[in-house]
């Protein structure tokens, strides 16, 4: 009986998730025309390419910087929202979550327009402060900055909501006890809030690390990897190599490099989730 009820789930996961995952391992060992087995040929080819190492570096810079800023902004704004009383808090929370609700492909178009080389609304505004036109997507540094900025904008509300839920679950008595002991606000955060929220912070950060590391939409729409491939992530480069240049084995090979970091993050998440389950 139980087997029948879970059969569709098992079939779905086996056929459309597990099978493609292993198929990708097999594809990565073929030549471009997919007629010949080349073993680790694609991997050694990648190791010799400068672009590949740039993608590795940029993926790490992108994911780590974006997650750190998302977590920081989420943590800070969650405290501000938590200070707001009752009904108004609901309104602020509702407003601040909007970036997370809009499909990223749609909101990234708005950013693309805000960053437009000749009509940029940001540059228009900055010109009043005497700040010269910034090549938001035209120069490597600014393009990297922009894709991270958009990712932080999109992801910070998620952290905000998770941290707000965690803040609400910290019992007031703990803060009262800390206040009686003469703790200042910094000590309250360090010794009460952070330990109480540790689990949620860990799970949210690891989860976001996976999603950010595997990001596709934002970079694809904003820069398509440019200028000169310097903003490519694993996902966008795999798309360019595998689909646009139709070298499927090499593309599969590129995307497989995401597996190690995803696996490490997944193991830690699983540990934290099961810990949480045992506590409850």
């Amino acid at each position: 009986m139980a087997f029948v009820l879970t059969l569709p789930l098992i079939l779905l996961i086996a056929l459309l998730v597990l099978y493609p995952a292993f198929y990708s391992l097999y594809l990565a060992t073929l030549n471009k025309a997919m007629t010949k087995f080349v073993g680790l040929g694609n991997f050694t080819f990648l190791f010799k390419r400068e672009t590949f190492w740039m993608v590795v570096k940029q993926s790490c810079i992108f994911a780590i910087t974006a997650v750190v800023f998302k977590a920081l902004i989420g943590f800070i704004v969650a405290h501000f929202v938590h200070n707001i009383p009752g009904k108004k808090q609901r309104k602020w929370r509702g407003m601040l979550l909007v970036p997370w609700v809009i499909p990223p492909a749609m909101s990234t178009l708005a950013w693309l327009w805000l960053f437009d080389p000749s009509y940029s609304a940001f540059n228009y505004t900055l010109s009043f402060f005497g700040v010269g036109p910034i090549p938001w997507l035209g120069e490597t540094f600014w393009a990297r900055f922009s894709v991270i900025l958009v990712n932080v904008w999109y992801g910070a509300p998620f952290f905000l909501i998770m941290y707000l839920a965690a803040l609400k679950s910290v019992p007031d008595q703990l803060y009262e006890a800390a206040a009686i002991d003469g703790a200042n606000w910094w000590q309250k955060i360090w010794y009460v809030t952070l330990p109480m929220m540790r689990n949620i912070i860990a799970i949210t950060t690891l989860f976001s690390l996976i999603v950010t590391f595997a990001n596709f939409d934002i970079v694809r729409i904003l820069t398509s990897g440019g200028p000169l491939d310097t903003t490519h992530l694993f996902a966008t480069w795999a798309f360019q190599v595998g689909i646009q240049s139709s070298d499927i084995p090499l593309g599969a090979c590129v995307s497989l490099f995401m597996v190690p970091i995803l696996a490490v993050a997944a193991i830690f998440i699983l540990r934290d989730v099961s810990k949480r389950g045992n506590e409850a």
Binding site: Y23, F216, I243, L262, A266
Partner: peptide
């Protein structure tokens, strides 16, 4: 059943950008 529940959670962590090439070829 416990393994399957864990497996379901792990599947949730597999991103689309890992599977689009093999799925396309499939």
């Amino acid at each position: 059943s416990a393994t399957l529940a864990t497996g379901v959670f792990l599947t949730y962590l597999i991103p689309d950008s890992l599977l689009f090439i093999p799925l396309f070829k499939m």
